[in-house]
């Protein structure tokens, strides 16, 4: 069953996007990822439409809160007061930001030994940055060959924001001029397909769906066929949220992955793991289990517009070498930003 959803007035207009200098990067050092809006120019009367400047404002706003609770306190501790930095307090602040107790101790220990000429702040900042995976260029879902679609599998535990993220990704790549097709492979949760259809409508993309309860692998299979037939560039597959401890459900996910590999040999689908920014230390176990099941190629860190800190990301990137690709900073369709590690760490200190 195919449902066609399209909004023709969707148009990219990069020129409107450069007039809002990002301050999230901090200081005079411009950080490209945050300076440049992701995509722009949805029709103005759509309340969900992206507006230039929103993205920066939201991230700035989001990080403001993050900073308020976390890094500004850290700065206070790290300020070169009479007694030097209060390392215990630094450790506690990192722990409070969900960086994790063991890792926080390690970071502090290494920062102390570093004796950074730039002072304690530079030392902690450098240690945090060193935990993150070095990135190449901008992230792009790739296709195996000309005329064949790139595939993005969206996975994660229940309630992290997978469907919302897909809506945002679909809008983003549509605005870049790609033809996106969504696969509604969350056939388990009540009304998940309806939710995806609503997002598809907002993003102006097509959806391949089966009836609730259908085999998710079959949905993905059909979506790939449909994408090939219609010449779509990109298939984004929604999957049901699943706790990483349920091995039968994780097997189901591996099966979906195998279907993609079989249908599009050499396609190397992108598997994005959607992680709730408020998640604590369990985030690492989650990421490991999903990595084992489908081989993660990236992470989307959602709900960063709350007071959440997302500190578990440091442990995940360090242990699994899977980089965060995007951060979700709001409920609107434009509220998805590329994650830039330098800008992220720098912005936290700003």
């Amino acid at each position: 069953m195919f449902r066609r959803r399209r909004r023709d007035e969707v148009a990219a207009d990069p020129d409107t996007s450069t007039d809002a200098p990002g301050e999230a990067a901090g200081g005079s050092d411009p950080q490209p990822a945050f300076d440049r809006p992701l995509f722009a120019g949805f029709d103005d009367d759509d309340p969900d439409a992206f507006r230039p400047g929103d993205a920066e404002a939201r991230l700035e706003h989001g990080l403001e809160r993050t900073r308020g609770g976390f890094m500004s306190r850290l700065r206070d501790y790290l300020g070169d007061g009479p007694g030097g930095p209060a390392w215990d307090d630094v450790e506690e602040t990192l722990i409070a930001g969900d960086v994790g107790a063991a890792l926080s101790m390690e970071i502090v220990e290494r920062a102390r030994q570093r004796r950074d000429p730039g002072g304690a702040e530079a030392a902690v900042r450098a240690e945090l940055a060193s935990l993150l995976v070095p990135r190449g260029g901008a992230w792009e879902p790739r296709s195996a060959a000309v005329g064949r679609p790139a595939v993005v599998l969206i996975v994660g535990v229940n309630g992290t924001g997978k469907t919302t993220t897909i809506g945002k990704l679909a809008a983003r790549y549509t605005a870049e001029g790609r033809t996106v097709l969504l696969a509604a492979a969350d056939t388990f949760r009540a009304a998940a397909i309806d939710q995806l259809l609503i997002w598809a409508d907002r993003a102006g993309v097509q959806v391949v769906s089966h009836a609730p309860g259908a085999d998710p692998g079959a949905v993905v299979y059909d979506a790939i066929d449909a994408a090939v037939a219609r010449g779509a560039d990109l298939v984004i597959a929604d999957t049901a949220g699943r706790l990483h401890t349920k091995s039968s459900l994780m097997d189901e996910l591996s099966k979906i992955r195998r279907i993609v590999d079989k249908r599009l040999p050499g396609a190397e689908p992108e598997t994005l793991f959607v992680l709730d920014g408020t998640t604590g230390q369990n985030g690492l176990q989650q990421a490991k289990a999903f990595h084992d099941a489908v081989g993660l190629t990236g992470i989307v860190l959602t709900k960063l517009d709350s007071t959440a800190k997302g500190g578990i990301v440091f442990a995940i990137e360090h242990d699994l070498a899977v980089p965060v690709r995007f951060v979700g900073v709001g409920e609107g369709i434009g509220d998805l930003l590329p994650f830039d590690p330098d800008a992220f760490v720098a912005a936290l200190f700003a």
Binding site: T278, G280, G283, I312
Partner: peptide, 12 residues
């Protein structure tokens, strides 16, 4: 409350 919530739970 999600049992997986981190340190933020108390603030929430």
């Amino acid at each position: 409350v999600d049992a997986m919530t981190g340190q933020e739970a108390v603030n929430v």
